[in-house]
């Protein structure tokens, strides 16, 4: 039986920030096809940088990014990759730039060659799938933080990617929207990699956990993702726990 190459693969990726001597990421090897992965780690350890390298926004010093076994060399290759992978930014304001929600969600499909009618149809369907029916003509910069996050997710889903890269999606969400996002992510067909400091969020949405330690990407084996009930003041607000 022939095994298919993984959807995305990183080989020996080394990256240093401009002006720094020691690399931020060193010889990272990673591959993923249909898994739901969580990525945790302290601030500034290179999680977002790793996403940017995967998407071809940053060029690594060494190493290769492979899509379905093909090495991505230049911008043209990465254009292909970006059809398959969707990247949700940490700050939704950076992601929404069209006046209305519908125009923003339709931006991707239009660029991928859909006709305006198709793009409109895909967008309406995507919004509906996220429970955002009736948001089409809303003005993007007037949405609330939670709504912006969901609309930003819609702009990516409308391109029908195979894998989602989500950068701290649960940040600054109220408990209700956070639960809603967990529900959405669980129901989606796509695999995903989620950066988060919110362990409970990762526990509900991911099956594996990775962390970046000493410039290396490490799969957490020893620790079992689990959640348990406990009590403390203001416990019904989103909060973080030590690992």
């Amino acid at each position: 039986m022939i095994t298919l190459p993984p959807l995305i693969e990183l080989r020996n990726i080394t990256y240093s920030c401009p002006g720094r001597t020691s690399p931020l990421l060193k010889e990272i090897n990673f591959s993923s096809s249909k898994e739901r992965i969580g990525l945790i780690g302290p601030n500034g350890c290179g999680k977002t940088t790793l996403f940017q390298i995967i998407m071809g926004l940053l060029t690594p010093d060494k190493g290769e990014v492979l899509l379905q076994g093909r090495i991505m060399k230049d911008e043209k290759d990465f254009r292909l990759l970006r059809r398959k992978l969707g990247f949700l930014f940490q700050n939704s304001d950076d992601q929404l730039f069209s006046p209305t929600v519908l125009e923003d969600v339709a931006f991707g499909p239009l660029n991928l060659g859909s006709s305006p009618e198709e793009a409109r149809e895909i967008s309406v369907r995507t919004l509906e799938g996220l429970g955002l029916k009736g948001f089409e003509e809303r003005i993007t910069h007037r949405l609330s933080g939670g709504e912006k996050k969901l609309v930003a997710l819609a702009t990516i889903l409308s391109m029908q990617p195979d894998l989602l890269l989500l950068d701290e999606p649960s940040n600054n969400l109220d408990p209700e929207t956070r639960e809603r996002l967990i529900g959405i992510l669980k129901d989606l067909d796509q695999a995903h990699i989620i950066i988060s400091h919110d362990l409970d969020f990762l526990a509900s949405t991911c099956s594996h956990l990775y962390t970046i330690e000493d410039q290396k990407l490490i799969r957490c084996k020893a620790k079992q993702i689990h959640s348990h009930d406990h009590i403390h003041p203001y416990g019904d607000h989103p909060h973080q726990h030590g690992t």
Binding site: F89, Q95, F97
Partner: peptide, 12 residues
Amino acid sequence: RVHQAMVLRGFN
């Protein structure tokens, strides 16, 4: 960052 977001969504 906005430009990056556009490029990621197939803007050329």
